[in-house]
Design a protein around this nucleic acid. Structure first.
Length: 368
DNA sequence: AAATCGGGGAA
DNA sequence: TTCCCAGATTT
């Protein structure tokens, strides 16, 4: 294997042969997933759409129980459209990227109102729906409707970057890689081809240690010929995450109810339920604000007990350390708008993001 | 073009 | 720890 050999320029004929070989590999190694139809059958667009939204930046293993739960609770897009948003958010709780859940609900309502309850087959019409971007529109068009479309996800990006040894770094290389993917897309069995390519990326052409010995495209791969396929795709380094701190106010009653608050519709954890908190300040700013000042953010003044330790949580673009303060009361009224009392033994009906589950667990361990 | 938006599994 | 996952939307 040479190190300086240029990438292989692939002819149309060669790309066609590659697609045939990949589909043959897929027919032998096809994974069964809950949203996939039996071989030869047309997939249910509702299932394909629901799975594709859940799978955005989320692993198959994580999605499976959520997919099963949603399908059991809302068997059709009309059922989902008729559900209150809060029940959708609570069912989505823990899956992350909560704008997906809000857009999922909005999309279901648009499919019912504007498309008679049936997803459009056209890629452009799909792209116009909430929460459906370029990848998802192409994926639904190809997988559910067998249209010729080229979805490009992280797996396909990686495969294309290796096959063609793309030197430009991601994310700047996305347009180039999208064009490359289109030149490989076959005119028939396009949905199977897209899923085959994603399976290839998930099981063979993996980020760390690709299993090139089992790859149906080994002979076509410029990165394999180079000898170090794992060094593609190139990526621009990511910025370090800043750190934020804040207080969480755990206010509990003798009858087992705790004070919660609904977060604003927009922004981080939008529309989700939280334990009331002070602002989450960058560490540099938090150092300038004294403890008593942060206490003013509490919805009810109280004789707070500071719990030991902190709750640690990492979001996409910052990490967070919350100090939990606890106080007991027999208050019945709702002190501030958007706040409400809710029994601790019925957390399932709340839309609690993971960081708030951590806060409650942190509190329960020390208050019993 | 860059920033925002979760959470978890794997190495 | 670091990486990255069937990305979309907003700024």
């Amino acid at each position: 294997m040479t190190v300086d050999e240029p990438p292989i320029a692939l002819s149309d004929q060669r790309r066609q042969a590659m697609a045939v070989r990949l589909l043959a590999w897929y027919d032998r190694h096809r994974r069964h997933l809950p949203w996939r139809a039996a071989p030869g059958d047309r997939a249910d667009p509702y299932r394909v759409w629901l799975s594709e939204i859940m799978l955005q930046q989320t692993t198959v293993v994580t999605v499976k129980p959520y997919f099963d739960g949603f399908l059991a609770r809302w068997p059709s897009v009309a059922d989902l459209a008729a559900a209150p948003l809060d029940t959708v958010l609570s069912a989505w709780a823990g899956l992350g990227y909560y704008a997906r859940a809000r857009n999922l609900h909005k999309c279901a309502q648009e499919v019912v109102a504007r498309h008679g309850g049936a997803f459009p087959a056209d890629e452009a019409a799909l792209l116009a729906l909430p929460g459906i971007g370029p990848y998802t529109a192409a994926a639904i068009a190809a997988i559910a409707f067998d249209q010729v479309a080229s979805p490009v996800d992280g797996n396909i990006e990686r495969v294309m970057a290796r096959i063609h040894r793309v030197e430009k770094a991601l994310p700047a290389a996305k347009p180039e890689i999208r064009t490359l993917a289109q030149t490989h897309t076959p005119p028939r069995r396009t949905g199977d081809y897209a899923q085959a390519l994603m399976d290839l990326g998930a099981t063979i052409c993996t980020p760390r240690k690709p299993v090139c010995a089992l790859c149906p495209w080994q002979a076509d791969c410029a990165a394999y010929a180079h000898g170090a396929p794992m060094t593609w795709p190139r990526r621009t380094p990511k910025a370090a995450k800043p750190h934020r701190t804040g207080l969480a106010f755990l206010y509990y009653r003798g009858d087992g109810q705790v004070l919660f608050r609904r977060r604003p519709e927009q922004g981080l954890l939008g529309g989700m339920t939280e334990v009331p908190c002070s602002p989450w300040l960058p560490q540099s700013e938090a150092a300038e604000v004294d403890f008593d000042n942060l206490l003013k953010a509490a919805p009810i003044a109280a004789n707070w007990a500071t719990l030991d330790g902190q709750v640690q949580h990492v979001f996409t673009h910052f990490s967070l350390a919350l100090t939990v303060l606890a106080a007991q009361t027999d208050a019945r009224q709702v002190p501030v708008e958007d706040c409400f009392w809710h029994p601790l033994d019925d957390l399932e009906s709340l839309a609690l993001p993971t960081v708030m589950v951590k806060v409650l667990q942190h509190g329960m361990r020390q208050l019993r």
